[in-house]
Design a protein around this nucleic acid. Sequence first.
DNA 1: ACCTGAACACCGTTCAAGT
DNA 2: ACCTGAACACCGTTCAAGT
Lengths: 209, 209
Amino acid sequence: MNTQRRAKRDLTIEEVVDRAMEIAQTDGERGLTMRRVAEACGVTTMAIYHHVADKEALLTAVVDRVVAEAIADFGAADRPWRDDLVEFLCRYRAGFLEHPTAAQVYLRRPVISASLARCTELMFEAFENAGLEGRRVTDATDAVVLLLMGAIGNDLTRPPAVRHELTQALPAEAAPRLNRDIDAYSHRDPEARFRESLDWLLDGLLAAD
Amino acid sequence: MNTQRRAKRDLTIEEVVDRAMEIAQTDGERGLTMRRVAEACGVTTMAIYHHVADKEALLTAVVDRVVAEAIADFGAADRPWRDDLVEFLCRYRAGFLEHPTAAQVYLRRPVISASLARCTELMFEAFENAGLEGRRVTDATDAVVLLLMGAIGNDLTRPPAVRHELTQALPAEAAPRLNRDIDAYSHRDPEARFRESLDWLLDGLLAAD
DNA sequence: ACCTGAACACCGTTCAAGT
DNA sequence: ACCTGAACACCGTTCAAGT
């Protein structure tokens, strides 16, 4: 809570994003207000608007940070393309799960950023290296992106306790299978589920002509 | 814009949800405020709180409506289980795409409701009918739900024009494949992509022991 | 160019009161 | 039980002004 007056030209966009990510981490999306960011930067609310067009632009910068970290060393390891892609997607998913506010923004609205463009380029490249051609490359990327976004959204908002509550929304006799299998369905390892789903998807798409 | 005073006991929770869905449809999530709902119901803002605990509860009721419509006649048609499941998931996806505000809520936070519990029961049943057993049933449901949520999120927030903008976030030479394939990637039929991805996923999971 | 301070037009919700 | 009216504690953002 730095209340000292700052020298001019001292505040940078990088620092604004840093503080925004810290606040998002501790207080979530509702706690991430322009007023709080300004306070954390030791500056008036309106000073933030000098470094960022509006709140949405700040949120886009936060999402870009998360993506940038996830794609940082894609392709660095020496292993088959499929392992490389799977590990990349897992890191991507994990990165957003560690930054729930960024994930909410990523899922809720369009996000255009340099890191996201780079990320798409990398996925096209991965499927090209796998021997796919033309539409097969973009269709495969499409499929993988759908599963990825779903895993982020689901694993972020449906932890075990939430899934478990489903049984209470209906009388037990109206949902016999749900009540019988709810423990297997709710108390599972989300990353393992994502990995297996991804394996099935890749198996299916590679088996198709 | 009914400004007449209403008789007491006249307003029902169903009407509140009706008005909320209309407002969400025309003005989106930002336009859906408690004040606007009350106005549309011809009642004071605080009168709404007599029928609903808070705004979140109202949003949950809106989501439940959308799910209820999607699952209405699941299993009614006489066809193989797989076709039945695929058509069901497509209707589910389409239902949320027709109600973007409901989709946003569905993706952003936990939603517990009777229709959602029923929906899970139906998916368990479908995979049981397909011959899966034990963990295979819940794991298959898990996989399909991930893809479903991802398709809703992606197709809602990433229309062709948005995907196309990706090319402008990076200099052309930094993303050669993206620039070459962007048209195939952005201007595609989202439902067709969902169907094919789902086919690949089901192929893969049925092929696994 | 960078920052301040006051104000505007909103929110969801609490609380006390009416009938 | 059902609804009203005023108020509270917030938001993001505009605008005019300082240095």
